[in-house]
């Protein structure tokens, strides 16, 4: 009965747009589906858009870090985009710094980040 969040594909990038407050089970489903899709579609990058999310608690935060780690293992890069200021402040206060997760202000900048070569030197 739990929902599944649709995963879109643009080129070799997978795009997930989280639109609503998530049930824990939906979060776990997403984690599973993404791992499957990265392999099935041999994706190079994953973008998770959380600009509609008003709350990111430690459970969702951990999911983001886990997805980033899983996709790294499957040779894809993950960028989390659109985190709201209030959410960012809250996560920092909570003690979650999402080390290892790369971030971008919005979808466009996230795509740009993925298209850059892996070495972090700009362009």
């Amino acid at each position: 009965m739990s929902e599944r969040i649709p995963i879109l594909r643009i080129g070799d990038t997978l795009l997930v747009s989280v639109q609503t407050d998530l049930e824990d089970q939906t979060v776990l489903n997403l984690q599973e589906d993404l791992a499957d899709q990265i392999v099935a579609r041999s994706a190079q990058g994953v973008i998770i858009d959380i600009s509609a999310l008003e709350i990111v608690d430690s459970f969702v935060g951990r999911m983001l870090a886990t997805i980033a780690a899983i996709s790294r293992m499957l040779d894809a890069r993950t960028v989390v985009v659109g985190m709201r200021p209030a959410v960012a402040i809250t996560l920092v206060e909570l003690g979650l710094s999402l080390g290892g997760v790369s971030t971008a202000l919005d979808l466009e900048k996230g795509l740009a980040k993925l298209s850059r070569p892996t070495s972090s030197a700009p362009q």
């Binding site: 824990d24 008003e54 709350i55 990111v56 608690d57 430690s58 459970f59 709201r84 200021p85 209030a86 959410v87 402040i89 809250t90 206060e93 909570l94």
Partner: peptide, 17 residues
């Protein structure tokens, strides 16, 4: 305030879990 709302809801989510 928006930030305080977010903090409170997040705390509630943690404790309820």
């Amino acid at each position: 305030s928006l930030v305080d709302q977010t903090k409170l809801i997040t705390a509630a989510s943690e404790l309820a879990r």
